[in-house]
């Protein structure tokens, strides 16, 4: 109960801060890396509150709280201001599209954290140790369930975000630029979701495969994003 109240209070404070951002800059915190990360942190925080409300307890918090804190620390250290470049599109459809995409990426971030802890706990169990790391890390079954749920939820919202973006583009622009780095990066993210879920099929230790796929997949997304930003800093604008 205390954890739920504290998490809810933290998320409420975060939401108020982002609302103030919206009022101050006249736009939603969806443009630029720092505001985007802060929004993802808010979405993951909402997931934490919902999970605690459903009674999953502090085991899940051990994974989600560090994810939220890390995202917010990076966002704040980058400077919470909107990007100087204006977005191509704006409006309700766009806000909906971006929020869904962020929810999807938030889900993958949670799957990454659970996957990482799953691999750590698996290592502890296989090396027959019961040290502090073993005590601290949640059970394998909990981590697997959290990772799977996050992946399914993330995949669903991210797919919806892509469909919405595609529909909006072809409806209002009558053309779809398939070579746009944003489009290519989004498709890569979606394929990573598919792969992380796909490895659960078949025989063998599907939990371990899924954890590994989530860790590798999310790392690939982060590395490719940073790479594209680096390239675009010399040329055009990328997210």
């Amino acid at each position: 109960m205390i954890a739920f109240v504290l998490a809810a209070a933290g998320v409420a404070a975060h939401a108020v801060a982002l609302a103030r951002f919206t009022v101050e800059y006249g736009q939603l915190p969806l443009n630029g890396l720092a505001p985007s990360l802060s929004t993802v942190a808010l979405i993951v925080g909402l997931g934490l509150v919902a999970t605690l409300g459903l009674g999953e307890g502090r085991r899940v918090g051990i994974v989600l709280v560090p994810v939220v804190i890390l995202l917010e620390v990076v966002a704040v250290s980058l400077g919470l201001e909107p990007a100087a470049e204006m977005l191509d599109f704006e409006g309700t459809w766009f806000a909906f599209h971006v929020t869904l995409a962020f929810a999807g990426l938030g889900g993958l971030a949670v799957a990454f954290a659970s996957g990482l802890l799953y691999l750590v706990q698996l290592h502890e169990l296989n090396t027959k140790r019961m040290g502090r790391l073993f005590q601290f890390t949640p059970p394998l079954a909990t981590l697997d369930r959290l990772g799977r749920t996050s992946l399914v939820a993330g995949f669903t919202t991210f797919t919806l975000a892509l469909l919405l973006g595609w529909l909006w583009t072809i409806s209002f622009r009558q053309s779809f630029d398939q070579s746009n780095p944003k489009v290519l990066w989004a498709i890569m993210c979606w394929l990573i979701f598919v792969a992380a879920l796909g490895v659960r099929a078949g025989d063998g230790v599907k939990e371990r495969r899924s954890a590994l796929a989530s860790v590798v997949g999310f790392s690939l997304i982060v590395v490719s994003y940073l790479g594209l930003r680096l390239v675009s800093s010399q040329g055009g604008f990328f997210l």
């Binding site: 169990l125 005590q135 059970p139």
Partner: peptide, 20 residues
């Protein structure tokens, strides 16, 4: 009081860390 100190409690600790 930290850490399991009997065969039975070690077993319980392991079971809980695997299955929840």
């Amino acid at each position: 009081g930290e850490g399991a100190a009997s065969v039975a409690s070690v077993a319980v600790g392991l079971a809980r860390k695997i299955f929840g």
